[in-house]
């Protein structure tokens, strides 16, 4: 069984982001970029399936400008077998990404697609769900545990009330949550081997997808700065403030 893992290049999670002064978006000039952390978890899970003899090949795909090759190389260095880069300069939205991934899935025919539940840049949390609908495959989102058994995936999902276990028939789309696994580091020998692994270049047009944005960003602004609190002298005053201040009690 092939496993397909989409990966996205995003601003590194350690970077303190800044909004551009004209409010048109987040400043990404000279900012460290990395693989979306949820996608690292997805790559790790796919690699574990391969090591367990469940998956035969792990294919990673990324959509974006030529620079996204970085994160594909990282995935290859972690152990993925080959990569597909769908090159576009457009800002890609979840629907366009899902349509391209549908095209990739139809060409590659994976038994399983493992995607991050969301990317930490726009936090859309839509691509996996849209992809599942477009392909007509079952979906299991927010996975914290994944087992494959006889043509089905048993997935433990993190839901508001706790954990939910569902079974989906394969092929399926699974999206990963934070507690599924801890991604490995790319070892030095694997970084060198990754240089020789195949990386195929495509364009959205190859899949008949128009990536022209449909959403318009009106304004991006910093969250409001948290105001300093006040000190109270006694419990009585505390209770008083809780009652009178914005009706907290």
């Amino acid at each position: 069984m092939k496993v397909l893992v989409p990966v996205k290049r995003v601003v590194d999670h350690n970077v303190k982001i800044r909004v551009k002064s004209d409010g048109s978006g987040v400043d990404v000039a000279n900012v460290k970029m990395s693989m979306n952390p949820f996608d690292e978890i997805s790559v790790e899970e796919a690699l574990r399936l391969k090591e367990a003899g469940v998956a035969s090949e792990v294919i990673v795909v990324s959509i974006g400008p030529a620079k996204v090759e970085d994160v594909l190389r990282t995935a290859l260095a972690m152990g993925a077998d080959r990569a597909i880069l769908v090159e576009t300069e457009d800002k890609t939205e979840p629907l366009a990404v899902a349509k391209i991934l549908k095209g990739v899935a139809e060409a590659e025919r994976p038994g399983l697609i493992i995607a991050g539940k969301q990317a930490i840049d726009d936090d859309s949390n839509q691509t996996g769900q849209m992809l599942s609908a477009l392909l007509g495959w079952p979906q299991a989102t927010f996975a914290s545990k994944l087992e494959i058994a006889e043509g089905a995936a048993i997935v433990t999902r993190e839901v508001d009330g706790g954990l939910q276990v569902i079974g989906v028939t394969l092929p399926a789309v699974v999206t990963t949550d934070l507690r599924l696994n801890s991604p490995r580091y790319a070892s030095l020998p694997n970084i060198m081997k990754a240089k020789k692994k195949p990386l195929e270049r495509k364009t959205p047009a190859d899949f008949g997808v128009d990536t022209t944005p449909r959403l318009k960003v009106l304004k991006t602004e910093e969250p409001e700065v948290r105001k300093a609190g006040i000190k109270v002298k006694s419990v009585a005053e505390l209770v008083e403030k809780l009652k009178t201040h914005a009706g907290l009690i």
């Binding site: 190389r73 990282t74 260095a77 790319a186 070892s187 030095l188 970084i191 990754a194 240089k195």
Partner: peptide, 15 residues
């Protein structure tokens, strides 16, 4: 180079 950056990333994360 990209390779050196990747090597650095592994060493940095590990550290």
């Amino acid at each position: 180079s990209d390779i050196h950056e990747q090597v650095r990333e592994t060493a940095r994360q590990f550290a």
